[in-house]
């Protein structure tokens, strides 16, 4: 790896394609997929069920999007395809001394269903190349390919953003921590909240699957974040109060960039107003960032986000 950081701007963007599919959307491939994944949805194998659901005929599971235009075992593309490598930048990085690769992220958007007989193709662009980054694995670049999928009417049926980290692995003495044979490389961890006399009760509650706030011993006002004293009556006495965990979204943010490890991106974070009146920041799960609405009712749950680290998060209530 050279000392100077390579200039990869020439590889950004571009518009490659079409990358055509070997086969039209077909029943056998759909049947294999559903069998492998255990998906019994009848719209994928029963034409009557599909028509009853409003389709013209059998449709394919949207998650097969990438499969239709993959090169196949012999890595060849069908006639009429662009023959250039959409990931040319990775070949260049290999030659510059970044030999390793790991896939880090795949985000697909499904615009419309594809049905039996549709012939698909996709076009590709390099949407982003990060600056040189150093992670636990090594030093390299995050490259994101944006593929847009079309049907035979040139309508967009979906998109995929596929991100890889192309890197030079750390030399053993440069590694962030010693790696034992057979163990996973050390990973960046989420910050662990500091527990002191004022905050310990909250995190012990989270470990026990309870959401808690402070209740002032003087004027009974609830407060969060926790503090040593009551701002209203200055009492230094307080007790932990369990709260219901029901609230509404008061505001929210979707984190896109920078992609600070170890979070998955985009990362949806809300300011939740609990029904008891206090607010707290937490992650939203079970909802797309496009569907979040201020005021939507949510309910707390607890998840082990990292080994040994339980955290609260909120999920929209059904039917909202």
């Amino acid at each position: 790896m050279s000392d100077a950081t390579p200039d990869l701007s020439a590889y950004l963007g571009g518009d490659r394609g079409p990358y055509r599919s070997w086969d039209a959307v077909n029943r056998p491939m759909i049947r294999h997929w559903c069998e492998a994944l255990g998906d019994d949805n009848p719209i994928y194998h029963d034409a009557d069920a599909a028509r009853a659901a409003g389709f013209d005929g059998i449709v394919a599971p949207p998650t097969m999007l990438q499969a239709w235009t993959m090169r196949g075992y012999r890595e060849a593309r069908p006639p009429g395809s662009d023959t250039s490598d959409p990931f040319e930048v990775l070949v260049a990085l290999e030659e510059l001394g970044y030999p390793a690769v790991v896939a880090v992220n795949c985000e697909q958007e499904y615009t419309q269903y594809v049905g039996e007989g549709d012939t698909l193709y996709h076009r590709s662009t390099i949407e982003s190349i990060s600056e040189q980054k150093s992670t636990a694995l090594g030093v390299g670049f995050f490259v994101t390919e944006l593929s847009t999928y079309y049907n035979q009417r040139d309508e967009v049926v979906g998109t995929m953003r596929f991100r890889v980290f192309k890197f030079a692995p750390h030399a053993r003495d440069e590694a962030a921590a010693p790696v034992e044979a057979g163990s996973a490389p050390p990973a960046v961890r989420r910050m662990r909240p500091v527990r002191n006399e004022d905050t310990r009760f909250f995190w012990e509650g989270v470990e026990a699957g309870e959401l808690r706030v402070q209740r002032c011993g003087g004027c009974q006002t609830l407060r969060h974040p926790p503090s040593s004293a009551c701002p209203h009556c200055q009492s230094l006495e307080w007790t932990p109060q369990r709260v219901s965990g029901r609230g509404t979204v008061y505001s929210f943010v979707t984190m896109h960039y920078p992609e600070i490890p170890p979070f998955d991106y985009p990362n949806l974070i809300a300011l939740v107003e609990l029904e008891e009146g206090t607010r707290l920041v937490s992650n939203l799960v079970g909802v797309s960032r496009h569907d979040v609405r201020i005021g939507m009712p949510v309910q707390v749950e607890f998840a082990e986000v990292e080994p040994g680290f339980q955290l609260h998060q909120f999920r929209p209530l059904e039917g909202c």
């Binding site: 910050m191 905050t199 943010v253 974070i269 920041v281 201020i294 955290l311």
Partner: peptide, 21 residues
Amino acid sequence: GWYFPHGLMTPASWIAMFAQR
């Protein structure tokens, strides 16, 4: 500690919470 464990860890993200509202 009320923000970083959830990934709300940059100035842009803190402003964004106000901006959305």
